[in-house]
Design a protein around this nucleic acid. Structure first.
Length: 424
RNA sequence: GGAGAGGUGGCUGAGUGGUCGAAAGCGGCUUCCUGCUAAGAAGUUGUACGGUCAAAAGCUGUACCGAGAGUUCGAAUCUCUCCCUCUCCGCCA
């Protein structure tokens, strides 16, 4: 959410900054609603003031008996007019809130301009792309190695749900534990948050109200299945004022994630890449406003390091303005190599949000110099997606005999197992 | 699920329908004092959005005592609905 004062006073500049994204975002609507809201507000306040004066006269008993009758009547009339104004005021306020919540963040100056993902910029790549004769897709390899059972996953739920067979289950858990251990050792405090969250959380991190159809919601409770651990983690300190000395705060957590994938019909329908339920370890940071850029670099680096530890070839992409998410000022995507698809696929997305989420979730810190509480800055990134990691390991580590070697760092997490062999 | 208690400022905790933005204590801040971070004394201390001002300070207006509705000239205080927390019992991983 953008600062209303900033919009009011520098509408042109804000509009110019937003124009770097796709689809123009006109501010004239917001400015207009804001000014009529304030006009109504002023009128309403002056009526209140009069009512308070009348009350005061009752209190002090200064009015004569005849005056009392007319004052009583006046007060009743005032109340009626106030109620009319209140209705109008509430409507305008709602409208203003909706408009503001729908407005995206301002892109950072360092973000490359562009229309869509084709204009994203590769920052660097790591690792050697393996040479594999006729590489197979992970969905071809998985079932032969007791990793995936796609048919039964669909039977249990619906499409885009997968049953992990014994090796898959163990591998998924090994990756998850490796990631959590790795980030915990590097200063991220491990939490295990609720996986159902309330609406305030979803608004706080920016999923709602704009993307209502993307998420699973409980019918009888105002609760949502988390689409990412970003939601509970970023909301941990919602409506709180932290001390400056507490910052920065690094959090990490594993959660399952649930997404309807409403806009992705027909995309990645095969395999384990795009599921309604998937596992992920997420990294979240809270920091002082002037630290965002370096925190983004180190956050992204943390995500890269787990891929390097797993020896998976990847590249880092800087998203262009047109591909940036609603909340984000700047985003790096990490993409890992998928041999059978002959391309890189996203496995992590690391973003800085400035005070955009902090305003929505009311996340503040008290400056050490004793000033008023200020909004802090938030960042997050996948550290990284577990299911896609599993798929990438299957594809990159496939051998000509149909087996798959396990990355060294995972072997201890698998009781010493260092390869998966086909049954027969 | 049954029974009960309660939701007030950064925290603890008072509050008779007008004198309550709200006692008191703690904490915070400022100053004084004792030759050093300990103790003591005094003062000060909510938030949001407006107005005034070049701006800040200051002054000033309105709102806010879980949320919403109602009674009343006037509600933290009375009534209703909802939400949440706590205690006991039951049930359950």
């Amino acid at each position: 959410m953008l600062d209303l004062k900033l919009i009011r006073e520098n509408a042109d500049e804000v509009e110019k900054a937003l124009a770097r994204r796709n689809g123009g975002h006109s501010l004239s609507g917001i400015v207009k609603v804001d000014s009529s809201f304030r006009q109504i507000q002023a009128e309403w306040e002056s009526l209140n003031q009069r009512s308070n004066v009348i009350s005061e006269m009752f209190k002090t008993g200064k009015a004569s008996k005849e005056e009392i009758e007319s004052l009583r009547q006046e007060s009743k009339d005032l109340k009626k007019r106030r109620e009319d104004l209140e209705k109008e005021k509430a409507e305008l306020e709602d409208e203003l809130e909706t408009l503001r919540l729908g407005l995206p963040n301002l892109p950072d100056a360092t973000v490359p301009d562009g229309r869509d993902e084709n204009d994203n910029v590769e920052v660097h790549s790591w690792g050697t792309i393996p040479t594999i004769q006729d590489p197979k897709h992970h969905w071809e390899i998985g079932p032969t190695l007791a990793v995936f059972d796609f048919e039964r996953g669909v039977k249990l739920a619906e499409s885009r749900f997968t049953l992990l067979e014994e090796n898959g289950a163990k591998l998924e858990r090994a990756i998850m534990n490796f990631y959590l251990d790795f980030h915990s050792k590097r200063g991220y405090r491990e939490l295990f948050p609720p996986i159902l969250v309330n609406r305030e959380c979803m608004i706080g991190t920016g999923q709602l109200p704009k993307f209502e159809g993307e998420f699973y919601k409980c019918a009888d409770d105002e609760l949502y299945l988390v689409p990412t651990a970003e939601v509970p983690l970023t909301n941990v300190y919602r409506d709180e004022v932290l001390d400056e000395e507490q910052l920065p705060i690094y959090l990490c957590a594993y959660t399952p994630n649930f997404r309807r994938e409403a806009g992705s019909a027909g995309k990645d329908t095969r395999g384990y890449i795009r599921q309604h339920q998937f596992n992920k370890v997420e990294l979240v940071k809270f920091c002082l406003p002037d630290r965002s850029h370096e925190e983004l670099e180190s956050l992204t680096r943390s995500a890269e390091l787990v891929l390097e530890a797993l020896e998976l070839p990847y590249r880092r992409i800087a998203l262009c303005t047109g591909d940036l998410g609603l909340n984000s000022q700047k985003t790096y995507d990490l993409e890992v190599w998928f041999p059978a698809q002959d391309k890189y696929r996203e496995i992590s997305s690391c973003s800085m949000f400035g005070d955009f989420q902090a305003r929505r979730a009311n996340l503040r810190y008290k400056p050490a110099d004793g000033g008023k509480p200020r909004f802090l800055h938030t960042l997050n990134g996948s550290g990284v997606a577990i299911g896609r990691t599993l798929a990438a390991i299957l594809e990159n580590n496939q051998q000509s005999d149909g087996s798959v070697t396990i990355p060294k760092v995972l072997v201890p997490y698998l009781g010493g197992m260092d390869e998966l062999k086909p049954k027969n």
